[in-house]
Design a protein around this nucleic acid. Structure first.
Length: 226
DNA sequence: CTGGTTGTCAAAGAAGCCTC
DNA sequence: GAGGCTTCTTTGACAACCAG
């Protein structure tokens, strides 16, 4: 018999029995803890020992406590890793079922990727550590919206107003843009009238940090979901 | 030595699951 | 539904050890 195939006969209940026996130092107490009879646990351990081909539990006989052999302790260390991995898998499955895990495909423009996304991702990963964010960059908002509509993206950053479509949007940021012109330009000469209407003074040396290729008007980046 | 405790081993049977 | 398989329980006989 192939040893590796033989190990396929090992089951989680066997590892649980080994762990309980190792911790309680008694077949009977391990059995009570696991909800089995002492005989059942004894048979499980014996079955394991036949599978691995080594003595896993030292039975001194009588009321002396039973102890795991070196082979038993070695196998238990692997069992701990297996059980921990299983716990992680169970948590992942539960998280996936409630939408807290799995991939999240996000569409962005270059400006969003450079200025907004890094900070957002940091916060997002703290809150949703099991969600893998997959970023997809496009130069065109219309293309991003098309990908969301087709289901190729889960959400995208866009600018308001949105075109007609099966989208749900949430405004997350207002990012004012300003116009920079020469002091001698016609725009500067007409500033008085715009200032009185609530406009902002343009400066040739300073800006509010706007990076959008759009040169005029204020924009309101938004996340859009299909 | 005796009784109590703990564990092994074997056999019979119950229960659940799967396949046909 | 019947049959096969697996797992577990129950029961009984037995062994090893400890305490009184």
């Amino acid at each position: 018999m192939n040893t590796r195939n033989g190990f396929l006969g090992l089951e989680l209940r066997h590892l649980a029995a080994l762990e309980a026996v190792g911790r309680r130092h008694s077949f009977g107490r391990a059995a009570r803890e696991l909800g089995y009879t002492q005989s059942a646990v004894s048979q499980q351990i014996s079955h394991m020992e036949r599978i691995v081909g080594q003595r896993l539990v030292d039975r001194p006989g009588g009321p002396k406590p039973v102890e795991l052999t070196e082979a038993g302790r070695l196998l238990l260390r692997h069992a701990d890793a297996i059980v921990a991995q299983l716990d992680a898998a169970q948590a992942d499955m539960a998280a996936l079922a409630e939408g807290a895990a799995g991939p999240l495909r996000v569409g962005i423009l270059q400006s969003v990727g450079a200025r907004i996304l890094p900070a957002l991702l940091l916060r997002f990963r703290e809150e949703w550590p099991r969600v893998e964010v997959q970023v997809h960059e496009e130069a065109d908002v219309a293309e991003l919206l098309r990908l969301v509509e087709r289901g190729d993206l889960d959400l995208t950053f866009a600018e308001l107003p949105l075109p007609e479509g099966p989208f749900e949007s949430r405004e997350i940021l207002r990012d004012p843009y300003i116009l920079l012109v020469s002091a001698a330009s016609r725009c500067e000469r007409s500033r008085d009238s715009r200032s009185s209407a609530g406009g902002r003074r343009a400066s040739p040396t300073a800006s509010s940090g706007a990076t959008s290729p759009t040169s005029t008007s204020s924009s309101a980046p938004t996340t859009t979901e299909r």
